[in-house]
């Protein structure tokens, strides 16, 4: 456990001393802040539904940037061999990188709570959809980080890793549109692969355990495939 904690600390340090984390956070806050203000001032609606959908898209675009360097960079810098020859398992390495990257996503969500606080100060928002929306974003982040980590373990360099994970995310975002033109029962299968189909109910306050299960299973599958891909090297 001590080894794992040390590994997490090392990854956190690498992430939060690099400019990537701060650039991502600043861009995220600028765009979301603008979007929040615009929605609130124009519609006067006291909810975060629009904002949650925009954070969803932001996650699809920024998480590949966060995860691309996790393993691919170590491979380029040739520090991966050193790490693998240390008395730590592949599982511990992958989990440490996963936890560190997820902590940045959680930090983004924590900072975005300021918008909910504004709503609480000036109005009486319906907290149910806000809680479920944040739960959905957390699960989405957990799933995307795991998938991005897998891409980083598979790809030989950071750009390929980022492009690979971005392609997967975009495909999973819009795949339900193809599902509707397929015959039964393939349509149901393809529609249920979609990230947006499983994310939308969280945002609107309509919580299904199967949607939570979808994101949890992607996260676990991503961690499993990452460990296998790392061990293959």
């Amino acid at each position: 456990m001590k080894v794992f904690a040390a590994l997490v600390r090392k990854e956190e340090q690498a992430l939060f001393t690099s400019p990537i984390a701060y650039v991502v956070l600043t861009v995220f806050l600028l765009l979301m802040g603008y979007s929040f203000c615009l929605t609130l001032f124009m519609t006067h609606v006291s909810d975060l539904v629009h904002l949650f959908f925009q954070i969803f898209v932001m996650f699809l675009l920024t998480i590949p940037v966060i995860t691309m360097r996790l393993v691919a960079e170590e491979r380029n810098l040739r520090t991966l061999e050193t790490l693998l020859s240390a008395p730590v398992s592949e599982t511990q390495i992958v989990l440490a990188k996963y936890v560190a990257s997820l902590s940045l996503v959680v930090l983004m969500l924590v900072l975005s709570l300021s918008y909910a606080i504004v709503l609480a100060i000036f109005g009486e928002p319906d907290w149910g959809p806000i809680y479920s929306g944040y739960l959905g974003l957390l699960l989405l982040g957990a799933a995307l980080v795991a998938a991005g980590l897998t891409a980083s373990c598979i790809a030989r360099n950071q750009v390929v890793a980022a492009l690979l994970s971005l392609s997967i995310f975009l495909l999973l975002w819009i795949i339900d549109q193809f599902g509707y033109i397929l015959p039964d029962p393939f349509n149901a299968l393809v529609v249920n692969l979609s990230l947006s189909v499983h994310f939308k109910p969280f945002v609107t306050g309509s919580l299904y355990l199967s949607d939570a299960g979808y994101f949890i299973s992607i996260a676990l599958l991503g961690i499993f495939l990452s460990v296998w891909a790392l061990a293959r090297r």
Partner: peptide, 12 residues
């Protein structure tokens, strides 16, 4: 999981 799904309505 889909076949044993549970729904929670979180809205006020």
């Amino acid at each position: 999981l889909y076949r044993h799904d549970v729904h929670f309505d979180m809205t006020r």
